[in-house]
Design a protein around this nucleic acid. Sequence first.
DNA 1: CCTCCACCGGAACGTGAGGAGT
DNA 2: ACTCCTCACGTTCCGGTGGAGG
Length: 405
Amino acid sequence: MGNIFEDLLEESKIFENKDVLRPSYVPGQLPHRGEQIESLACALAPALRGETPSNIVVYGKTGTGKTATVRYVERELKDAACKVGSRCMLFYLNCEIIDTQYRVFAAVARQLSKSVPMTGWPTDHVYQEFKNALDAEGGCAVIILDEVDKLVSKGDEALYTLSRINSELKNARISIIGISNDLTFTERLDPRVKSSLGQEEIVFPPYNAVQLYDILEQRAKVAFKEGVLEEDVIPLCAAFAAQEHGDARRALDLLRVAGELAERQNSPRVRGEHVKMAKNKIEADRVAEVVRTLPLQSKLVLSSILLLDAERRKRRFSTGEVYNMYRKLSRYAGIDVLTQRRITDLISELDALGLINAVVISKGRYGRTREISLSVPSAIVKSVLFEDYKLSALAGVRLKVQMTL
DNA sequence: CCTCCACCGGAACGTGAGGAGT
DNA sequence: ACTCCTCACGTTCCGGTGGAGG
C-alpha cells in the first residue's frame, strides 16, 4: 500500500487507446482521401503485374495525410502482392534522416540484408552493392522517399542516379514515389530528373474544418472512453487546426494533449478549456524543445536577439546590430567568435525554425539588411537558454555588457 | 535617373571527426 | 599504421541588389 505508482497505474478514465491519436498511426480508413488513394493505387497497380509503375510525386503541406495515405497504400500493395505471389518490394525512406545519396543506397541495401557501414565506403561501392542486392531479389522495387525536398537540398545527384538506374539493372526495376511538402521543389531539379520523376503528380489539398472534424471524430471513437468528450471539444480542435493551414497532425495533437491535461486534473470529462490549454502547452513545449537542442553558437545568436530585445525600445534589429551584440556576448562567454557570413546562415536557420522572423528589407541609402525580431514569447526562450551552463553566466550580464561598451 | 550603403547569399575551399579496408 | 571515404561546420572571397537621397 502507499506505493507511489499505485495511483498512476490505475486504468485511464479518459483514454481507451491513446496510440490512435499519434501521428505515426495509420488508420484502417482515411476519410476524405479516397481520390488520392485511388490515383496512387492506379499508378502502382502495374507493379503487381510485374511491370514498372510510373514515378510519382506526391505534394501537400504538413498534416494533409500524405504520409499516412502512402503508407496505407503501401500496406495494401504488400498484402496484394503476397496474395498474388508477385515479386514486389516497397522501401519507405524518410529523407529527413536519410538525406544523402550514400544513405539512400545504404538504407535500401540494408533492408535487403546487406551490411553497409554508416559511412566509410566510396559512394560508387555502395551503389554497386545496392544494385546487386536489387538484382538478386528481382522483381519490382518501389522506393518511397518521404520529404524528398530534404534530399534535393543537398544536391540532386541521388535522384538523378535513381531515375536512371533502370537501364543498369538486369533483373529488377525500380520506381520512385517522392513525397514533398514543397510544391515548387521540382523546379530546382535538373530537367532530365524532373521529367522522369514527375511522370505522375498527386496533390493533397489541406483539410478544411469540416473534414478535420470527421477525422477527429473517427479517431476519437476509438481513442477515448464513451462519453468523456464534451460536445465542443472536437469542433474546437478542428477549428484551431483549420486556422493553421488544415494540419491534421496538429488537430490530433491538440485532442490528445487536451485529453492528457484533463486526465492529469482528474477531470471526468474533457472540456473546451482543456483544448485551449493544450494549444498553449503544445506551442510552449515546441519552442522549449527547439531552443534546448540548438547548437551553442545558435543559442548565442538567439541570446543576442533576446538581450537587444530587453535593452532597446524597438523590437526589430538589423543583422549588423545582432552581430555586434553577438560578438560582445561570445567574447564575454569566452567562446569563439564566428564571422558575420556564418552568423547570417545561423540567423536563417533560426528563422526557418520559427523562433525569429527575419525579412530582407532595403533601407535605401542606408543599405540592405535583414530585419530580425523574436517571434515567440521571450520568457520561454530565456528560461531554456540560461539552462545551458555555458550561457547561464550571461543571465545577469545585461548591465555589464552595456557598461563595457 | 543614378549612386551607393550594408548587407545578402553563392562558390570554393579547409579542417577535423568518424568510420572502413588493407 | 596508413589510406580513403563522407559529412558537419567554418572561412574567404566576391558579385549582386532595393530603394532613399542626392
